[in-house]
């Protein structure tokens, strides 16, 4: 069961059980994007508040498997306080990590590095990346509700 433990690292399980920054807020300073994957039922809403160039808050809500939910929670912590440019870079870095490539900035990915094992489980890639996709879209100004088809 070694490789299963590569996937379900302690950090992932811990964030799944005790999600950080969970729950959305009202207010015009918050922008939200909801992404749904109808084929598996994962349904995540990411909400951000920016102040100038800085992403001050990242919130999330929704339902899905452990990889999907913990990814949103870890992301919310990793991105909080970063500039928009840094956040965009981290989204790219996370995609690299999930593809089994070396991310440029492992240190800033921090706890998100726990998802390194996902690359061995192609069926779970879409679970890990859903909330990062939502964040990426929010960072370039998108909002609303979208279905992801993969």
């Amino acid at each position: 069961m070694n490789s299963i433990n590569d996937l379900y690292r302690q950090v992932i399980v811990e964030h799944y059980k005790n999600p950080r920054n969970k729950g959305l807020k009202e207010g015009s300073e918050y922008r939200r994007l909801r992404l749904k994957n109808p084929s598996c039922g994962d349904d995540v809403t990411i909400q951000i508040k920016t102040n100038g160039n800085v992403v001050e808050e990242v919130l999330h809500d929704g339902s899905g498997c452990s990889i999907c939910c913990s990814s949103a929670s870890v992301m919310s912590e990793v991105i909080k306080g970063k500039t928009i440019e840094e956040a965009e870079g981290l989204v790219e870095d996370f995609y690299s990590l999930i593809k089994g490539e070396e991310p440029r900035d492992e240190e800033s990915l921090d706890e998100a590095m726990a998802f390194v094992g996902v690359s061995q489980f192609p069926a779970r890639v879409k679970c890990a990346t859903l909330s990062w996709k939502a964040l990426g879209a929010l960072l370039i100004g998108e909002e609303g509700v979208k279905d992801i088809h993969e």
Binding site: M1, S3, I4, L7, Y8, S39, C40, G41, G64, C65, S66, I67, F121, A123, R124, C127
Partner: peptide
């Protein structure tokens, strides 16, 4: 308490092909 896709990965590791989802 476990999402079917989380559980499915264990079966996959054991070469047990079953379906998970709706």
């Amino acid at each position: 308490g476990i999402h079917p896709h989380d559980a499915a990965t264990i079966f996959d590791q054991n070469n047990v092909a079953l379906r998970a989802g709706h």
